[in-house]
């Protein structure tokens, strides 16, 4: 299953709840303002590090770069992807849920 999150974790609890309801083997894509949840040194780093134990986490690089961040700012283990990669992730997962 693929979970997509597009909200900053500082603004909404979408990322927290997405992690709460995701299970082993699921994928999580962070895009739009949710890329802030993928960054090192924020108070959500522990949450994401915990999520990385069971799930694959992806960050949409165009959204990351637009916001002045680069992959070097991202927590280790989070994978880079682009729009074509986003499409592939949704092909690979039978169920897709958007955490708006």
């Amino acid at each position: 299953m693929l979970h997509t999150v597009n909200k900053s974790p500082f603004d909404k609890n979408s990322l927290e709840n997405c992690v709460r309801f995701s299970r082993k083997g699921h994928s999580i894509l962070l895009f739009e303002d949710a890329i802030y949840g993928a960054l090192k040194g924020t108070r959500f780093e522990a949450l994401l590090t915990e999520a990385l134990k069971n799930t694959s986490v992806y960050v949409l690089v165009p959204d990351l770069e637009a916001r002045g961040m680069r992959m070097e700012n991202v927590i280790e283990g989070v994978k880079a992807t682009d729009y074509a990669g986003f499409v592939n992730l949704s092909v690979d997962n039978k169920t897709v849920q958007a955490w708006l």
Binding site: N6, F31, E32, P62, D82, Y83, A84, F86, V87, N88, V91
Partner: peptide, 14 residues
């Protein structure tokens, strides 16, 4: 985002 996704999907043969 929807536009970029749709475009990428179409360009990749979906």
């Amino acid at each position: 985002s929807a536009y970029q996704f749709t475009k990428a999907a179409l360009e990749n043969g979906h």
